[in-house]
Design a protein around this nucleic acid. Structure first.
Length: 580
RNA sequence: GCGCCCGUAGCUCAACUGGAUAGAGCAACGGCCUUCUAAGCCGUAGGUUACAGGUUCGAGUCCUGUCGGGCGCGCCA
């Protein structure tokens, strides 16, 4: 539709250029917008205002010349000049009803771009440390990341989802030691869990199951640390405890605790996300970057190019050369690579895998990290624009009007699983998907749990279910509901019908725009618009009581609406129920 | 102190990415169920878009400053 308008207006502009009204070398960027009000027609074009200056004419005068030069076309019934110089285009009714044919032709492909016709994109999201169950904060990243992946796919991109598993860091060691201490406790020993260990119930459970499985096989003393701890700083005590545990248990014994902790939590996370409707193509292990030597090679390469230098026994990356605030350590003075070193190798590997674009969905607390990762890509000779980091702001949780603390180590948090069990995956996904990523979000748990009316998802789903019931009733009354695509669409045209038709017509544009700006929330708002248009229509038009042939056209419009709601909800990852 | 994000109706959020009279839901008020699902519809009320300047035909949107909130500023991950 916009393409056709574009072609017609381009002709007009060329005419004006050849008449010397507009400078011939001037670049013209034609934009058509849907109007907000019916009196302004279907589309508005602001081109006359844009060209007013180069053409040295006032906008309304220029608009008049433009309209004059516009070739006539059956698509357009009327063209108005309004306001400061908008050109308002009124479309023929065929132009409205033609959308129905498109919907029947393409059904579940309507609104979607040609598959794999655009970029190859990776979306990496959630990637929470496997040190505990996912909480509702991760839920936002999961819902946003997955909806984004779906929107990008819908727009015609080839998309892969990835979860980066931080299975190599200190946090994992802290977890393993926490499990070990819970194991000792389960065996009846009196050992205290350090204050900064992992305190969740799931750690106790793991310790207990290990005790049951292996008995006293792994009981070793770490009392010396416990006794000495009062002399150490908290974090230092923890590191000492880790070191001693490794030493006393031996590599094999330690690995048992480590792997059990890692695998059981990772399995839990996978299942949790899968039940949330989020399925990944790859689970990328940080440890594999060590094992494959990719980290070492990346660091060597940076040393060779002079981007990494030695100072105070550690190796520093000259990120300041690429706009970062200060240089960053990649290899510590004890020879251990930092998390940043893994991340350099990881992002290099990502781009080496041939993605046109890698999108990272990160929590906003990681924003300071972006410059150094981009610096690394540049230093490695990669185009930093191939990496796009999208920040998701924290959801601040409220319960009973009070803020709820969120700390994985302390074990005080609301899990994603609890939320899903309270309100269901669909409602949770829709609720999260409504917000754009950088918008701060207050999450009232009482409201979320009590949420019936409050969640607009029900409103959208209800429209879908209503249409399903309408068709059941039609069949029950032996009304012919076949070959709706052949209905006489000229039978449609009252206010509610044209509002609805316009809404249905917008769908492809909305999908495209949502993908372009990484804004899946646009789909949810669009769906609410469609649902509103349909509910309103439904209330004042009794479909089944209407005489043929109009009734068939009304059924066609209803079926088309149902299809669009289904397609839209699928993009958000929410089911479209047949009944409610 | 420096950096990033945010500030829109009583509350939670939109606003086609610079367009025309800033819109929804919830909460409030008034109507609509013997007729296809009332988880719905129709209507009323609610705004100096934090504040002050600037850019231009045109600003909630861009720039500068101020105020307020969130988050960062480790040889943690």
């Amino acid at each position: 539709m916009k393409d056709q308008l574009h072609a017609l207006f381009s002709q007009a502009i060329n005419t004006l250029k050849s008449n010397q009204v507009i400078p011939t070398d001037h670049q013209v960027n034609l934009v058509f917008e849907r109007t907000r009000q019916k009196e302004h027609g279907d589309f508005a074009c602001n081109i006359a205002m844009m060209l007013a200056k180069p053409a040295r004419k006032n906008p309304r005068e220029l608009a008049a010349l433009m309209v004059e030069a516009l070739p006539s076309d059956p698509l357009i019934t009327k063209v108005d000049i309004a306001g400061p110089g908008f050109i308002n285009v009124f479309l023929a009714s065929d132009a409205h009803t033609s959308v129905l044919k498109a919907i029947f032709d393409k059904s579940d492909q309507y609104g979607l771009g040609k598959p794999n016709s655009k970029q190859k994109i990776m979306v990496e999201f959630v990637s929470a440390n496997p040190t505990g169950p996912l909480h509702v904060g991760h839920g936002r990243g999961a819902a946003y990341g997955d909806a984004l992946a779906r929107v990008l796919t819908a727009a015609g991109n080839q998309v892969e989802r990835e979860y980066y598993v931080n299975d190599a860091g200190r946090q994992m060691d802290i977890l393993a030691v926490s499990v070990f201490i819970r194991y000792l406790q389960a065996m009846g020993l009196s050992v205290d869990l350090p204050d900064n260990g992992y305190k969740g119930q799931y750690v106790i459970n793991m310790g207990a199951s290990l005790a049951q499985q292996h008995g006293n096989k792994y009981i070793v003393s770490i009392d010396d640390i416990v006794k000495a701890r009062s002399n150490l700083e908290d974090e230092a005590a923890l590191d000492a405890t880790i070191a001693l545990t490794k030493e006393r248990l031996g590599a094999k014994g330690y690995k048992l605790f480590f792997d059990l902790a890692l695998n059981s939590i990772l399995d839990d996370i996978k299942q949790d996300l899968s039940e949330f409707g989020v399925d990944y193509d790859t689970w990328y292990s940080e440890r594999s970057l060590f094992d494959s030597g990719k980290i070492e090679r990346a660091v060597e390469k940076l040393k060779a190019s002079g981007d990494v230098y030695e100072k105070g026994g550690a190796w520093w990356f000259r990120t300041t050369d690429y706009g970062d605030e200060k240089d960053r350590v990649v290899v510590r003075d004890n020879g251990q690579p930092t998390y940043f070193a893994s991340d350099i190798a990881y992002h290099q590997d990502k781009l080496d895998r041939g993605f046109d674009l890698a999108i990272n969905v990160w929590g906003s607390d990681h924003h300071g990290y972006i410059p150094r990762v981009k610096a690394a890509l540049q230093a490695l000779g990669l185009d930093q624009n191939r990496l796009n980091v999208l920040l998701v702001q924290f959801a601040v949780l409220y319960r009973g009007g009070e803020k709820v603390g969120m700390s994985t180590r302390s074990g005080e948090f609301v899990t994603l699983r609890e939320l899903r069990e309270d309100i269901g995956s669909d409602a949770a996904r829709f609720f999260y998907a409504q917000r754009k990523s950088e918008q701060h979000m207050d999450f009232d748990l009482d409201l979320a749990k009590a949420q019936n009316n409050e969640n607009p998802m029900y409103y959208v789903q209800y429209a879908h279910a209503r249409i399903c019931r309408l068709f059941e009733n039609a069949v029950g009354q032996s009304i012919d509901v076949t070959n709706l695509a052949d209905a006489d669409f000229d039978q449609l045209g009252n206010d509610q019908e044209s509002t609805l038709l316009t809404a249905l017509q917008r769908f492809p544009e909305v999908v495209e725009k949502a993908a372009q700006h990484f804004e899946p929330h646009q789909i949810t708002y669009y769906l609410k618009d469609v649902a509103t248009a349909y509910h309103s229509y439904y209330n004042s038009n009794k479909v089944l009581d209407t005489e043929e042939p109009r009734r068939k056209a009304m059924l066609a419009l209803s079926a088309a609406t149902k299809q669009v709601i289904y397609n839209g909800l699928t993009i958000i990852g929410v089911r479209a129920p047949e009944s409610m």
